[in-house]
């Protein structure tokens, strides 16, 4: 009786494990869309844990998109990344460096206030990375650098935000 119960539990557990692994694989592929925001500007909204496997996929997908779209700017939005520790920061900096080699400048956006304070205490130096508070700010920055801007008709053309 006891043995039978154990076997059933064991099977259920390993099925659960297989399911989790399958879902992890699916997430790797699904959760990395590269969005074209403008001519020459692409964005990747990062969501969830940025472990080594995930960031490898992000880097490959982003570099491909930069070539395909002839992007001059790539925005990495980390609003959906709950924790930025030294490994995540290292992955971000590697991605920025690789994009630079492909001729695109990266802008990291969506660093929430609590994460900004944590990064400072941790002692991480993101000095070489261009950062903006929000995705909108990052887009405005990239448009400005490209020589275009967003004109608001209501205010009669106030220039770039």
């Amino acid at each position: 009786m006891g043995t039978l119960r154990l076997v059933v539990l064991d099977t259920a557990l390993s099925e659960g494990q297989a399911l989790i692994e399958r879902q992890q694989l699916q997430l790797l592929e699904v959760a990395t869309p590269v969005i074209k925001l403008w001519d020459g500007i692409v964005a990747v909204p990062l969501i969830g844990t940025l472990d080594s496997a995930r960031s490898q996929v992000v880097m490959e997908t982003l570099l491909e998109a930069i070539v395909e779209q002839h992007a001059r700017f790539a925005i990495l939005d980390i609003t959906g990344v709950p924790t930025v520790d030294s490994l995540v920061a290292q992955h971000l900096m590697k991605t920025v460096a690789a994009a630079r080699l492909m001729g695109a400048e990266c802008v990291v956006s969506g660093i929430r206030p609590a994460i900004a304070q944590t990064i400072v205490h941790l002692g991480l130096d993101l000095g070489t990375v261009v950062t903006r508070a929000s995705l909108a700010d990052a887009l405005a920055y990239a448009l400005h650098e490209l020589g275009s801007g967003i004109i608001s008709p209501a205010t009669g053309g106030a220039g770039p935000r």
Binding site: T83, V84, D85, P113, A114, Q117, H121, L122
Partner: peptide, 17 residues
């Protein structure tokens, strides 16, 4: 609070790794 939570989670992430 949120800032202290974030600091603790980040420290735990470093030490656990």
């Amino acid at each position: 609070g949120l800032v202290e939570q974030t600091k603790l989670v980040t420290a735990a992430s470093e030490l656990a790794r």
